[in-house]
Amino acid sequence: MLLEFLTSTYFDNSVLMWGYALGTVLLFIVFSRIVLFVAKKYLKKLTSKTKSDFDDLLVDLVEEPLAFFIILAGFFVGYQFLSFPQSVSDIFYNILRVLVMLDIIWFVLKFTDSFFERIIKPITSKTKTKLEDQLIPWIKKTVKIILGFIGIVIVLDNMGIDVFALLAGLGIGGIAFAFAAQKTIADAFGGVSILFSRPFVIGDTIRFANGAHTGKVEEIYLRHTKVRNLDKQLVIVPNSILAGEIITNITKTEKRKVMWTIGITYDSSVEKINLAKKIISNAIKNCELCDSDYTVAFQDFGQTSLNILVIFYTKQATFKAMAAARDIIGLEIKKEFDKNKIKFALTTQRIQLKQ
């Protein structure tokens, strides 16, 4: 009974041959899982202890692409137990060939990723400038796109598709696409301009859009730049806008200017005005965050106050340093004004009624 079942035929092959074929495929799948497990569990631990990054690169490569290649090899070996018409075999081998090529493309792209992450990045991180660090992601993406495109062309050619005719058709459509993608192209050129002219780099605090936005640059991409503003909101700015903007790089600024107009009441005597100026000057002098260059002078007669002009500079240009200096000086002025009975002027309005 069992022998009769094993010798029975389905799709021109006996059950026994189908069993050999499926068993072979399953065996290769199990073997691929073992290879993947060993690579992730043990090889990575061993290579992480070595000084060289080359062995880490090799382990990255032998993971998924190699496991998939082993599975494809299992299908190839398993198919040898079966007998099909030549037309069916041609279709099977063509599909298998395409899958092998796609696996090779996967391998090459994974190699590119690992090569840039484990070999190139550690080298560029040791340089003094940040230009190389910003260029690496762009170069990596460009290389991967080119390699992927070449791989797809080879696959299509092996499938019998006329690649040159296809590319010619894409060339005609590319003209229309170029018109539609003018904004994208402008953003890309803006990104290249920013990268090489370097008005700012990642980590710089900038002010742009006529002073409407101030924030820290987090990422610079080909099309846009990500800026985290003072409200901790992420602002995504097209590079074409930034490339044509007047940008103030606060990080590159040596000092940061603070300007106040402090108004005191009109009933203040000249002595009180001079005392107020002295209190303000001392507050600035005693603040360690402030530069020695400052101005404190009587400004003008306001509608409701006698105005004193105050200009000082912080030693650091960061927003935190400026806010801290304003806080220290402002509270010191308030404390001394209260102690010496100097009154801040309030905005008032006088209404005269005629009877």
Rank of each mutant, 00 (worst) to 15 (best):
S269Q: 11
L147M: 11
I247F: 07
K339L: 13
I95E: 06
D338R: 06
R350M: 13
E117W: 05
S305H: 10
L61N: 05
G190Y: 04
S305Y: 11
K49R: 14
K277W: 01
L309W: 10
K334Q: 14
I194G: 03
V38G: 11
G244L: 14
L57M: 13
V163A: 03
C287I: 04
M17P: 02
R118M: 11
I328R: 07
Y294W: 07
D113W: 10
D55M: 13
K44Y: 10
F28L: 07
M159D: 00
I172K: 10
I342K: 02
L289M: 08
D53W: 10
A321H: 04
I145T: 06
F37M: 13
V143H: 07
Q355S: 08
G203Y: 05
N94H: 09
S240G: 02
I194S: 04
Q182R: 15
F200M: 06
S32W: 08
L289D: 09
Y42N: 07
F149D: 00
V217G: 08
S281K: 08
L36E: 08
K121Y: 06
V77Y: 04
E117K: 13
H224F: 01
W138K: 12
L72T: 10
A317C: 12
P137D: 02
K339V: 06
I105R: 01
I154Q: 01
L166E: 05
A212G: 09
V30L: 15
L135S: 00
Q303D: 14
A209V: 08
L102A: 13
I279D: 03
A67P: 04
L242S: 10
K130I: 00
L61D: 02
Q352M: 04
V201S: 14
F69K: 03
L166V: 07
Y10A: 11
F164V: 14
E332G: 01
V30C: 11
T261K: 11
G302N: 02
Q182D: 09
I29W: 09
I333G: 02
K45W: 04
L234Q: 09
D267V: 07
L147A: 06
L346T: 10
L147S: 06
L156E: 05
I175L: 12
Q316I: 09
L170D: 01
F179K: 12
N274Y: 07
L46A: 14
Q233K: 13
M1T: 06
I279K: 03
I104V: 14
L242N: 05
S305Q: 13
W138C: 00
T314F: 10
I246K: 15
I104N: 00
A209M: 10
L6A: 11
K44N: 12
F69N: 04
I95V: 15
F179Q: 12
L43K: 03
L99C: 08
F301M: 09
A324N: 12
V25K: 00
D293T: 09
D53N: 15
K320I: 09
V108D: 06
S125F: 02
K130R: 04
R228V: 12
T142N: 04
N239V: 12
C290M: 08
A324Y: 02
P85R: 09
E332Q: 13
R223P: 00
K45D: 08
Y42E: 05
Q349I: 11
N158K: 07
L156S: 05
A67D: 03
L156A: 14
K130A: 05
R118L: 15
A165T: 14
S87T: 13
N229F: 01
I185R: 10
